[in-house]
Write a protein that binds this DNA or RNA. Structure first.
Length: 568
DNA sequence: AAAAAAC
């Protein structure tokens, strides 16, 4: 209840002591099935997924009992790892290697079987190889094996690889290698401004990339800068400005810096757009174009990375690149098969809370990431859960202060949050190794959103689980998402696949149906009987739904071609 | 199709 008061005041400073106590409980774990509801299946120790440090050291995640450390030592280590980005890595999973890789373009370099093979081929420094080793990278993933040689040869690249397959390293390693290459022409220009630039759509992601970059560049004296309000001032100092080698930033931040004249991009040789489709959509495009225009050096290597790349975005990307190679790992716009996905029918918005509470009252693997559609709904759902006795509830959206956001992320990284409610901010790129369950409390608004959200789990070859709630109002995109789920190897109720593809008119119409601003409002508005009548579609129940549910909303539309069209 | 995010 204490936490609730804090929440209603708009603060996110959860009672740390309470959390610590809970974390201890958690460590003992056999007692962790407290009345609040959270429990997990490993009854011997901290769930391996939460033991971030073990991954950093390259241990096998699946095997328990392997850890030689007691909970105390672990806790200490977790503390030390606070604020360290999602930089722990574990690449030993055999599941990583099996994805099909296709490359299109001229003179495509041979993939690298091992990191070490790059040493002779591209004069990769032993220092960098050592840093790789230290960071727990042992065997390149598909995107790394194919992408790194391409970038090391200075080629432009469009890289499409599923969530959690190691895209970040794929572009950071070549940048770091190029910056340290003795023969590099950019060497003599050292001190004349930024040489490499990485753009990402959210601060949290930029922060995470920065951490990763710092780890790989250990032992170098480069200045690697994460742009933010705080660092903007430093840039006024010419000495600082000219010494920056690598910049990681969100677009608007960088554009602001450019306009104030506090950053010089004319020496940039490497430009990367992470989450490229997001960076190239309407809201970011002009900013990104401005940045690209600012990189005035005649020889800028450009690369774009994402798990999803709709045709429109790809076309824009291709227009920016010079004789690029296009790499696709696995299936485009599709979640990893390792993620077990399901759909849950919840009638209307008012029925979501009870459904979620029931879900959380059963054993699950914390932390679970819950996506909602608006900031208000994030805070009000957090309140609802806390009122109802759910423990270690946390939330994160972009309406919070930077500090609040940073704190929430670090609580997440430390395993203090069991239930993290968030908006779309967290959907892309964030690498929380411990997340094994994602719940789409509010239906995702695009295939891309769906793919990225559920991609917060199942990272680096580990298994994951994703549940998506849908209401009568979510009809228009239900079938599309169902097809995505099907394509990635999970099953969906048959009746959903038989739904007609809604026409544009219908979609427009449906779009006008307004979702209550907050979950409280939803409950007030909702029929009281709807709350009791919660139907969860699982297994055999699905069949029943098949006859009943679709009629009301989904079926009275002219049947168009109902072919499964997965890409938007 | 629309909210979120970017400052």
């Amino acid at each position: 209840m204490e936490a609730f008061h804090l929440l209603t005041r708009g603060g996110t400073n959860f009672n740390k002591k309470k959390f610590e106590r809970d974390v201890q409980l958690f460590n003992q774990s056999s007692k962790a099935t407290a009345k609040g509801g959270a429990s997990h299946q490993d009854h011997s120790e901290l769930p391996p997924e939460l033991d971030f440090f073990k991954y950093a050291q390259g241990g096998q995640p699946k095997r328990k009992g392997e850890s030689s450390e007691g909970p105390k030592a672990k806790k200490q280590k977790l503390k030390e790892s606070q604020d360290e980005g999602g930089s722990d890595n574990d690449q030993d999973s055999p599941a990583m290697g099996r994805q099909r890789v296709t490359a299109k373009g001229t003179n495509v370099p041979e993939p690298a079987e091992t990191f070490r093979s790059l040493e002779s081929r591209y004069e990769l420094s032993s220092l960098l190889l050592g840093n790789l080793e230290k960071s727990g990278y042992h065997q390149p993933t598909g995107i790394q094996a194919h992408g790194i040689p391409i970038l090391l040869e200075g080629r432009d690249l469009v890289a499409i690889s599923p969530t959690g397959t190691g895209k970040t390293l794929s572009y950071l390693l070549p940048i770091i290698s190029a910056l340290s290459a003795p023969s590099s022409s950019s060497k003599q220009d050292t001190g004349c401004g930024v040489r490499a630039l990485v753009l990402a759509p959210t601060r949290e992601l930029a922060h995470q990339i920065h951490n990763e970059c710092l780890k790989l560049a250990q032992g170098r004296k480069w200045k690697i800068m994460l742009f933010s309000k705080a660092t903007a001032n430093n840039l006024n100092d010419k000495n600082v400005r000219d010494k920056v080698d690598i910049v990681i930033s969100t677009p608007l931040r960088l554009v602001a810096a450019m306009q104030s004249g506090s950053v010089e991009l004319s020496n940039v040789r490497h430009l990367v757009l992470d989450e490229a489709d997001r960076m190239l959509d309407a809201e970011f495009l002009s900013q990104v174009q401005e940045v690209i225009a600012g990189c005035s050096h005649p020889n800028v290597q450009k690369a774009v990375f994402s798990a999803t790349l709709p045709a429109g975005a790809e076309q824009i990307a291709m227009g920016m690149l010079d004789n690029p190679i296009r790499l696709v790992v696995g299936l485009k716009d599709t979640p990893l098969p390792l993620i077990a996905q399901s759909l849950t029918y919840v009638a209307d918005d008012a029925s979501k809370v009870p459904t979620l509470l029931q879900y959380l009252s059963q054993p699950y693997n914390p932390p679970v990431l819950i996506f909602v559609s608006t900031q208000d709904r994030a805070t009000s759902l957090a309140e609802e859960l806390i009122i109802n006795g759910t423990r270690n509830v946390d939330y994160l959206h972009a309406g919070m202060t930077k500090k609040e956001r940073d704190d929430a992320v670090s609580r997440m990284r430390q395993g203090q949050s069991w239930v993290m409610i968030c908006t779309e901010v967290m959907a892309r790129g964030m690498d929380f190794k411990g997340v094994r369950e994602v719940i789409n409390y509010d239906f995702p608004q695009s295939v891309q959103s769906y793919v990225h959200r559920v991609g917060r789990t199942g990272r680096m070859g580990r298994e994951g689980k994703a549940v998506t709630f849908f209401t009568n109002e979510d009809g228009p995109f239900l079938k599309t998402i169902a097809n995505v789920i099907l394509q990635s190897g999970s099953t969906v109720p048959e009746w959903i696949l038989k739904l007609p593809k809604p026409s544009k008119m219908k979609r427009k119409e449906m779009g006008k149906v307004k979702r209550p601003e907050t979950v409280q409002e939803a409950r007030r508005v909702g029929r009281s009987d709807a709350i009791k009548k919660r139907d969860i579609i699982t297994g055999s129940k699905r069949r029943k739904e098949k006859e009943k549910k679709p009629v009301s909303v989904f079926s009275n539309e002219a049947h168009e071609d109902s072919e499964g069209d997965v890409s938007s």
